[in-house]
Design a protein around this nucleic acid. Sequence first.
DNA 1: GCGACAG
DNA 2: ATCTTGTCGC
Length: 234
Amino acid sequence: MDAALHEWNLSPKQAIALQSRLAKQLESRDRIDPVRYIAGVDIGFEEEGAVTRAAVVVLKWSPEAAPQLPVVEQVVHREPTRMPYIPGLLSFREIPAALGAFAKLETRPQLVMVDGQGIAHPRRLGVAAHLGLWLDLPTIGIAKSRLTGTHGAVGDARGDWVPLMADQEVIGAVLRSRENVKPVFVSPGHRLTLETSLEWVLRCLGRTKLPEPTRLADRLASRRDHKASQRRLL
DNA sequence: GCGACAG
DNA sequence: ATCTTGTCGC
């Protein structure tokens, strides 16, 4: 709890220094248990941004049912927003709430998919990578837009992808997850290679832009779903 | 100094 | 992220 207090109350300069240190602790090889449950995480906001709303959805993995995986548990956790959005420091704004949601979770997933970057980050520690270290679980980042890195044109067919490069290294993949739609940015977070990350994203991909875990977490975290559930209560 | 910039 | 209805296209 002491470490937590210090980790989330840092100045931008201190936060940047911490990211560089933590990035060295990431495991870039596959270290994953047999997958039974996959979690999707996303964050939304309420009260004009004053309240942070973290959503976690757990799906039961089964190759037969994929990509239609049954939801076995879902949790929403709210808490006061502690810091503004600063490009590159997203994890310090979102992870505290995400950890609160995981604390309420009964199921321990073997794989976590996060809305945001994995190592495709200026200091190689995007929100998915940072969360992976905290949870000590394999994580994959799936972002809807680019934060850093360069890439060529992506093919038009579903499943086409090109490497996302930075400093002569492959930090992720720009994936055409659905035709006629902007590609998504996939990058490994913790305990996974890019190849394995792409395999899991494709396995969980329906005919939508986002793979099921983050698509459902996105919906649960959004303001839209919030109002929908309130309407059902009336 | 001038842009770029996850959610 | 969020504010927001209809509308163009596969």
